[in-house]
């Protein structure tokens, strides 16, 4: 019988330790998702039943938050005109990582019924990475809740990597943003 006293210490590599901590963090992150709602289109009408007694988002630990700094999910619903896209990018840059983006309705996917407007962008994915799409014009509340559950599954499977993609391909996103908007000036406006 091997003495426990002289059992050699099992060496865990730093990568292994980091992975374990990250999994513990993922458990907390997927059970407490706070939303920042960026509602410009008509899909926003599907959110009140999702929050109130009909579907009760809070039982999943989700809830609305007031500012981008506090939020985990940026919920984009509806069309994005060039003016609102600029604000959306500023908002996304302010959120603390890990951050996720959920796009609601068909407007952020392909422009929806505004696909031929000169003032509206068609694909949100070109400007900020999107983790979950909820398709439909407009999607049911069931579909919205399903989208959130999908996002939780993605966080569990470590496939909700939009924010990492934004870091890795920042140049590409930046180029697309500048191409559409002309100028994107992300800065800390309180300390300049």
């Amino acid at each position: 019988m091997k003495s426990t006293k002289f059992t050699p210490e099992r060496n865990i590599s730093k990568a292994e330790t980091d992975r374990k901590w990250w999994e513990i963090g993922d458990f907390f992150r997927r059970n407490s998702l706070w939303l920042l709602m960026y509602c410009t289109g008509c899909c926003a009408i599907e959110l009140p039943p999702a929050m109130t007694s009909a579907y009760d988002m809070e039982r999943l630990g989700m809830g609305p938050m007031a500012t981008p700094r506090q939020a985990d999910i940026l919920l984009v619903s509806g069309y994005l005109s060039l003016k609102t896209l600029r604000r959306l990018i500023y908002t996304y840059e302010q959120m603390s990582e890990p951050r996720y983006v959920v796009a609601l309705g068909s407007c952020p996917i392909n422009g929806g019924i505004y696909h031929d407007s000169h003032a509206v962008i068609n694909q949100l994915d070109q400007y900020v990475p999107v983790d979950v799409y909820v398709a439909g014009c407009m999607p049911n509340t069931e579909a919205v809740m399903n989208g959130f559950v999908d996002l939780m599954e993605q966080i569990k499977n470590k496939s909700a990597n939009g924010w990492k993609k934004y870091h890795d391909n920042y140049e590409w996103y930046r180029q697309n943003q500048i191409q559409s908007l002309g100028e994107v000036d992300v800065h800390d406006e309180f300390h300049d």
Binding site: G25, R29, S32, D56, S96, E97, P98
Partner: peptide, 24 residues
């Protein structure tokens, strides 16, 4: 409010989630 409501330990989850995030 006729909802199910969160789990009773939801506040702990919220606090530990916040501590696990990056901050500016």
């Amino acid at each position: 409010q006729k909802r199910v409501g969160p789990r009773w330990y939801q506040e702990f989850l919220d606090i530990f989630k916040l501590l696990s995030k990056r901050a500016t």
